[in-house]
Nucleic acid binder design. Structure first.
Lengths: 220, 220
DNA sequence: GCAAAAGTGTTCTTTGTACACCCATGG
DNA sequence: CCATGGGTGTACAAAGAACACTTTTGC
C-alpha cells in the first residue's frame, strides 16, 4: 500500500472561504500533496507538500483523517489555515498554476480529494466553536470587526457584535496592541493580536459542534 | 513506507477500564494489529485484526489517528468499545494469549503502542461528554444504574443519579424495554436498551471535553 | 452634520447543579 | 423491619441571547 499526504488549505478572502489548489501536469486540479515521503515524518511531508506547491512555509498543520483509496493507497489528510494576505502564493517547481478557489465552486479534483476538502471544512467549522481558529486566518494585528467577519464567514451567519466582543475579550484569546487603525470612514478600531487560549463563539454553536463533533486534539 | 493498523479496544469490567492485549510469539504484548493489509480497506483490516487476535467480530470501530514510526511505517490507529461479557475472547491462530489489562497497569507494549492506548483513552473520555459511548460497553439490556456506573468509571468521578436519569432519558438515547430485573437486594430496576441519539453527561464535562477536544465525526 | 463603524451594560431566558424524600424488594 | 438500590421533583446558580444608545472619525 502506498502512502500519500494531502493538505486541505483554507483562507478567508473577500467575505468568502477559499481553498488552495494547484495544477501540475494534466488539466486536473489537486490539493497540495506528496507521494511516498521517504524517511520523513508525515507532518513534515505535509508541510513540504504545501511549500512545494505554493512556496508557503511555516504553517501549522493538523492531521485530519486517513482515507483509503480502493485498498491500494492510503491518503493521510491534513488541515491548514492561512492568511492569504500575509502568505502570497506562487507556483513551485513542476507546478503550472496555483490559486485560491471559493470553497463552493471548486473545479474537478483529483480522485478522492473532494472528500478531503469536505471533511476539512467540517472540522474547521467544528473547531470554530471552541478554538480561536480565526487568528490563523488573520494578519498579525487585526480589529475585532475583522475577526468577527471571519467567524461570520465560517459560520455562515451574523453574530451580535456586542456579545462577540465580550466573549472574545473574556476568553483572553486576544490582547490589545495599543495601536489603532483608521479604516476609511467610521471610528478607528483598536488593533489586537493573538494571545493564545481557547474560544467558543456561543452556546448554540457549541451545541451544534458537539452534535457533529467527536474528536480530540491530536497527540504529540 | 509500510502501513499497519492497530486497534485500542476498551471495556469496563469490575469497576475498571481495561484494554485488550495479546501475545503472539515473543514475550511482548501488543494491541490487535495487522501488517500491510492487501487490497482491503483500512476499516476491514482493523476489524480483521481484532477478530484474528481474539475471535471477536462485528464491533464498530472508529479511526483515531495515524502515527508515523520513524518515517518508516505508518500505523493507522482505531478505537473500539466492547462489552466483555457479551463478547468472550479467545486466542486466535498464532496467538499465544489474549487478555484484558487494567488501563493503568499495562505490561510493556510493542513499540509506539503506548501512544495509541493513551490517545484512545483521551478520545474515549472526550466522547463521553457528547456521545452515548456507554451503550457500546453494556449488554443489550441494562439498568440506568449500570449505565451510570460505566460513566463514573470513564469520568473517574461520581455522578448525581437524579440528574443522570433526567439527562439520559431526556436525551432519548435509551428506551424502556418494559422488563424489570431484580438484582439481589433493593428495588428491581427497569431495563433499557439503546435507542440511538446523542448524549452529554453534564455541562462541566462538556466544557472539559471541549477544552481537550477538537475533531469531528469521521467521514463516511 | 450625517453616515458609518467602534465601543459599552443590562435584562431575560435557558441550562445546569445541588439537594430530600418515597418506593420496592431481599434478607 | 431495615438495609439497599430505584425512582421522582424543586429551588438556586450560571451562561447565553437579545437588545439601545453613545463615541469617533471621514466626507
Amino acid at each position: 500500500m502506498r502512502v500519500r499526504v494531502e493538505v486541505a488549505v483554507f483562507t478567508v478572502r473577500d467575505g468568502g472561504l477559499e481553498v488552495l489548489l494547484g495544477r501540475v501536469g494534466g488539466g486536473t486540479w489537486s490539493l497540495p500533496a506528496a507521494g511516498p515521503p521517504e524517511a520523513r515524518s508525515l507532518d513534515d511531508a505535509a508541510a513540504g507538500a504545501l511549500e512545494q506547491m505554493s512556496g508557503v512555509r511555516g504553517i501549522a498543520m493538523e492531521q485530519l483523517y486517513t482515507f483509503d483509496r480502493a485498498g491500494e493507497e492510503v491518503a493521510v489528510a491534513y488541515l491548514a489555515l492561512i492568511d492569504a494576505g500575509r502568505h502570497p502564493i506562487g507556483p513551485g517547481a513542476e507546478v503550472v498554476e496555483v490559486r485560491w478557489f471559493p470553497h463552493d465552486d471548486l473545479p474537478t479534483l483529483a480522485e478522492g480529494q473532494e472528500a478531503v476538502v469536505a471533511y476539512g471544512l467540517q472540522r474547521l467549522r467544528a473547531k470554530t466553536a471552541y478554538a480561536p481558529v480565526a487568528v490563523n486566518l488573520l494578519p498579525d494585528l487585526f480589529t475585532l470587526g475583522e475577526m468577527q467577519a471571519v467567524y461570520e464567514v465560517l459560520l455562515g451567519r451574523a453574530l451580535d457584535a456586542r456579545n462577540f466582543r465580550r466573549d472574545v475579550l473574556r476568553a483572553g484569546v486576544v490582547e490589545e496592541s495599543g495601536e489603532v487603525r483608521a479604516e476609511g470612514r467610521g471610528r478607528p478600531a483598536r488593533l489586537y493580536r493573538s494571545a493564545g487560549g481557547r474560544f467558543a463563539v456561543d452556546a448554540r454553536e457549541r451545541r451544534a459542534a458537539r452534535a457533529i463533533s467527536s474528536g480530540d486534539d491530536p497527540p504529540a
